[in-house]
């Protein structure tokens, strides 16, 4: 008779560790900053009272935001705090979502990606369409949404937004690369900060397959310009080093601007004009202009200093 360790013992050990991990994942406390912020969020706004609070992490966010989760993960989401406020009879509920990102630049980037609404003085960069308010402040992106429309609900949305903005102590600086955008002809409603190829592709479909070699280490901006009725897109990317910028330039030429038209300009597959400039570790690319002159001028304006 053998007195060795029974063969099932290792499996029990593995199962115990797996169970412990599962319990930790489910029951782990919210991050300190989430609990701190939660304490300062309003319990009531007008006649709306909080009904419940849910917290989501980088994995569980998929269960809350169907289809949109990748957007928030592309901006380095840390956690999301979601609250529902029950309204009085006949009034819609309000949904408050507070997203915590790694940096203020990411929080502002989400707002720029969503892109709709009239400017309102709530938080940083506040925007409002009837029934939906969004803004960023510090590393937070905040959304307040009314599940129906009424004058009282709209007033409550704004009041809620102001209360949440006041509960966030931090403010943040816009991404530094935005300051390098030329001002002439810039459509200020179409400036998107990003560092993930999926986000760029959603604003610039030609950029599929990540020709700019974007990553978490490459802050970038895509902006639209209109000059004398001629439109074009400008993409600017800061790479960790000049070598990375040079490599990306070659790929952009090959995939987006294959035709060297001379005089520093190139043409894309659809015949539109574009071009690229390197300045140290920064790459600036103009795409989609119907006129060579406009593309050249925008490129000259964008070829600013080394970041």
């Amino acid at each position: 008779m053998t007195h060795g360790v029974p063969p099932w013992v290792p499996f029990v050990g593995v199962a115990a560790v797996a169970a412990a991990v599962l319990i930790w994942v489910v029951l782990r406390p919210a991050p300190d900053d989430a609990r701190r912020l939660e304490r300062h969020l309003p319990g009531e706004v007008g006649d709306w009272a909080v009904e419940g609070t849910d917290r989501y992490g980088r994995t569980s966010i998929y269960s809350y935001i169907d289809g949109h989760a990748e957007v928030y993960l592309a901006y380095d989401l840390r956690w999301c705090l979601a609250r529902r406020y029950r309204g009085p009879a006949g009034e819609p509920d309000l949904v408050l979502d507070v997203f915590r990102f790694a940096t203020p630049a990411d929080a502002s980037g989400v707002l720029s990606h969503q892109g709709e609404g009239e400017r309102v003085a709530v938080g940083q960069g506040g925007r409002l369409i009837p029934g939906w308010l969004s803004f960023w402040k510090g590393p937070f992106f905040v959304s307040v949404y009314a599940e129906g429309e009424s004058p009282a609900a709209l007033a409550a949305v704004l009041e809620m937004g102001r209360a949440v903005a006041a509960a966030i102590d931090e403010t943040g600086q816009p991404p530094a690369i935005l300051a390098a955008l030329p001002g002439a002809g810039l459509d200020r409603q179409r400036i998107v900060y990003l560092h993930h190829p999926l986000i760029l592709e959603s604003h610039l479909p030609a950029a599929r397959g990540n020709p700019f070699a974007l990553s978490s280490r490459t802050p970038a901006v895509v902006a639209h310009y209109e000059r004398d009725g001629v439109g074009a897109d400008l993409v600017m990317v800061d790479y960790p080093d000049p070598g990375g910028a040079r490599d990306a330039l070659q790929r952009v030429y090959a995939e987006l601007l294959p035709d060297d038209a001379g005089n520093r300009l190139r043409r894309s597959g659809d015949g539109s004009w574009g071009g690229a400039r390197l300045a140290g570790r920064r790459l600036a690319v103009v795409l989609g202009s119907a006129q060579a002159e406009m593309a050249a001028a925008l490129l000259d304006d964008a070829a600013g200093g080394d970041p």
Partner: peptide, 10 residues
């Protein structure tokens, strides 16, 4: 569609 949930009753 608008917002984190991509929905508005509007």
């Amino acid at each position: 569609g608008v917002g984190p949930h991509g929905y508005s009753s509007r």
